[in-house]
Amino acid sequence: MSETSISANRVIDAPAEDIFEVLSLPAKHPQVDGSGTVVSGTDQRIQQVGDVFVMNMNSDVMGGDYKMENHVTGFDPKKLIAWKPCQEGTPVEKNGWEWMYELQSQGSDSTEVTLTYSWGDANPALLKKMSFPVFSESVLEESLENLAAAVSDK
């Protein structure tokens, strides 16, 4: 863990292609989410850096139901997918935290997946308003566990 990020990793018994297929479809994210805040996502597959996908969310801390626009910041098929979330209607520069999944093939049926949650680019005003990290390392570990289950159910 650094001062501005936390990570978890796990080997998943599935090819990188199958894992990437789950991660690049926002409708699958509620199955993967370890925080319990993701309610639903769009059926439109993420295809490139610059894509924006909307997630329906729910959290008591955020006052109940809300939407997040996720701006894709990293995309390399079967290797990397990353996005910066921001509340719907808020410029992405106002948030600045990022989720990143890195996939490293360990053979034809096994992939090491590293999930990183970083807030190094978070807006200073947001850093004063919220206490980072908002999510713990255990949330990342649960997300990876959920990802393994989602891939096996594919």
Score class of each variant (00 low, 15 high):
residue 58 N to Y: 14
residue 137 E to D: 13
residue 111 T to N: 03
residue 75 F to R: 04
residue 125 A to G: 09
residue 124 P to Q: 11
residue 65 D to E: 13
residue 76 D to Y: 00
residue 152 S to Y: 07
residue 74 G to K: 06
residue 131 S to Y: 01
residue 45 R to F: 00
residue 83 W to L: 05
residue 71 H to W: 11
residue 40 S to F: 06
residue 83 W to T: 04
residue 38 V to C: 06
residue 37 T to Y: 03
residue 17 E to V: 03
residue 1 M to P: 14
residue 36 G to Y: 15
residue 46 I to N: 07
residue 118 S to G: 12
residue 108 S to I: 15
residue 109 D to M: 00
residue 28 K to Q: 12
residue 99 W to C: 00
residue 106 Q to L: 09
residue 112 E to G: 14
residue 14 A to V: 12
residue 23 L to V: 10
residue 38 V to M: 08
residue 139 V to W: 15
residue 52 V to K: 02
residue 23 L to G: 11
residue 16 A to M: 09
residue 56 N to C: 05
residue 91 P to K: 08
residue 23 L to R: 10
residue 110 S to E: 05
residue 19 I to M: 07
residue 55 M to P: 05
residue 45 R to K: 09
residue 50 G to A: 03
residue 150 A to V: 11
residue 10 R to E: 14
residue 50 G to K: 07
residue 90 T to V: 08
residue 61 V to H: 07
residue 115 L to N: 08
residue 89 G to S: 04
residue 40 S to P: 12
residue 48 Q to T: 01
residue 51 D to M: 06
residue 67 K to F: 12
residue 84 K to T: 15
residue 152 S to W: 02
residue 78 K to G: 08
residue 154 K to R: 12
residue 110 S to T: 04
residue 127 L to I: 13
residue 133 P to C: 13
residue 48 Q to R: 07
residue 130 M to K: 07
residue 12 I to D: 08
residue 53 F to G: 00
residue 147 L to I: 07
residue 140 L to C: 12
residue 51 D to H: 05
residue 138 S to F: 14
residue 103 L to N: 05
residue 115 L to K: 13
residue 138 S to N: 11
residue 13 D to A: 03
residue 99 W to E: 08
residue 74 G to R: 04
residue 20 F to G: 00
residue 90 T to E: 04
residue 111 T to I: 12
residue 135 F to M: 14
residue 129 K to P: 03
residue 57 M to R: 06
residue 59 S to K: 15
residue 3 E to L: 14
residue 112 E to K: 15
residue 91 P to Q: 04
residue 89 G to P: 08
residue 34 G to V: 10
residue 60 D to Q: 11
residue 136 S to Q: 02
residue 1 M to H: 12
residue 11 V to L: 15
residue 4 T to P: 02
residue 140 L to M: 11
residue 111 T to F: 04
residue 88 E to D: 14
residue 1 M to R: 08
residue 32 V to K: 11
residue 120 G to C: 10
residue 145 E to R: 10
residue 136 S to R: 04
residue 17 E to I: 10
residue 124 P to N: 04
residue 101 Y to S: 09
residue 52 V to S: 05
residue 32 V to R: 14
residue 118 S to W: 01
residue 4 T to Y: 13
residue 134 V to W: 11
residue 130 M to G: 10
residue 142 E to A: 09
residue 27 A to C: 01
residue 57 M to V: 13
residue 8 A to T: 01
residue 49 V to R: 12
residue 6 I to E: 10
residue 8 A to F: 02
residue 96 G to T: 11
residue 145 E to T: 13
residue 76 D to E: 03
